[in-house]
Design a protein around this nucleic acid. Structure first.
Lengths: 250, 250
DNA sequence: TCTTAATGGTCTGTAATTAGTCCAAAAGTC
DNA sequence: GACTTTTGGACTAATTACAGACCATTAAGA
């Protein structure tokens, strides 16, 4: 695992991860899967969305056409038409497929760094009434979600916490990492999650944040992540792979 | 600051930040400024580098030509020729220029999340002799650096800590954030940094990591970041901008 | 010394991407 | 019902980016 420490090649990452078309599809899919655009809701208009994504309308349209063909969205034209997120079609096909241990460790470690910190920052921030409302809305939303919509609502909830932490970079990192975890979860057989337990933990996190208890929020979030971490680690056979990933960070 | 909470538009980021040419220049510059390629050292060969950066050789060459024109690198042809990092020309022109308070807060907050966590993870990991050596080398390197080379060596040191933390994503995030801080520092008048104090803190961090003291490493890193944070905050006039940024995360 | 290998330098054809314009449908507004 | 606005749909020309082949230069190695 540890070849070439310090050799620049190890630290040089690709500037681009595929062409604009592919990256746009991936980004849109990420937003849909993370519940950023709820089922049945409308995406921004093409002209606006292409602007937001920093991509030409032509490229965006190619990507949207692909998503439409795959059944993720429906497109209607005319005034108050637009691109609408389809029902169903969430959470991929629970095919097995091999988890890359390095990817699992990386994403779980990184997430264990980001999310508890986000909760802690949220607790320390002087939250406006709007922000409190936002958190409570997200909490209620995930608590009310049926099992098949749980994952996106859950993701949306955790991103909401990052949103009130005051750092856009942190929000982006949390969203990216959630998407990566989601992709990993799509690759393992579906296990009925313990929604009640999860919701209780969500409540704890929010309670701690709203009463300004940074340490409590940090620890509650840490505990909450543990479940997914163990689940994913359980699907890595080799006992060598466990390492310190997803363990706590003070 | 808090308009449109939860509205998707806020969470949609550009897929690309400019064209491939610009992104490549920026990335190379980042690597040079962060001391990834030391002064006088040779960058990987064009064919290899273009592969690593995921960009065509033509585009990479355009970018290198630009860097050459700006005096950052020198190019020699023939066998064992290549692209060499020039002396001098580091650390931009200490022009004043306006700091964007949002950017300052974002980057300092994010960094305060990432770096202490990286140190803590490094302390918890079972470090191989090579990894310990890598850390000690980086430490010695920064301690021996003359003032004009301090910034890149310092950055390299902190990236080295992230490298042994076991999460490539964390390494990338730390490197990116360091680069952003560096850009901000370039925009304020040069203040002679207290190198001795900084080096003592580096030593403390490494000591804690090597003896496996995660909490100690976390706190030492937190303290170390405080200096830069105060410095940058000092250049933001409005008292409203301080917020919780760069404060500690449990 | 001669050969070879590693490197940057140059060119060409193709594909992806963009910006811009105009068209067509649907729904609101008067 | 006629007009206007908002939306997706379709085309074009220009630019950017790419892959690949080939040339030129230099130093290492036989």
């Amino acid at each position: 695992m540890e070849e070439a420490l310090g050799v620049p090649a190890r630290l040089i990452r690709p500037v681009r991860h595929g062409n604009a078309f592919e990256e746009t599809i991936e980004r849109l899919l990420q937003h849909i899967k993370l519940g950023l655009f709820g089922v049945g809701e409308k995406l921004p208009a093409e002209r606006e969305l292409s602007e937001l994504l920093g991509v030409s309308r032509a490229t965006l349209r190619d990507a949207l056409a692909e998503l439409q063909k795959a059944g993720y969205v429906e497109v209607r034209r005319g005034r108050s038409g637009g691109t609408y997120v389809s029902e169903g079609r969430l959470g991929g096909l629970a095919g097995s497929a091999d988890l890359d241990p390095a990817e699992v460790n990386d994403v779980l470690t990184f997430r264990a760094v980001l999310e508890p910190a986000a909760s802690s920052l949220a607790a320390k921030a002087a939250l406006s009434p709007r922000q409190r409302r936002h958190l409570l809305d997200a909490l209620a939303d995930v608590a009310a979600a049926p099992v098949e919509l749980y994952r996106p609502k859950d993701a949306r909830f955790h991103v909401a916490i990052a949103e009130v932490s005051g750092s856009p970079s942190l929000v982006a990192a949390v969203a990216d990492t959630r998407a990566r975890v989601s992709d990993l979860l799509d690759r393992i057989p579906f296990l009925e999650p313990n929604l009640e337990h999860s919701n209780r933990q969500h409540q704890e996190i929010i309670d701690a944040i709203l009463r300004g208890d940074a340490d409590g929020a940090y620890r509650a979030t840490q505990d909450h992540l543990q479940g997914t971490a163990s689940l994913l680690h359980g699907f890595l056979v080799s006992p060598e792979n466990s390492s310190a990933a997803a363990s706590d960070v003070p």
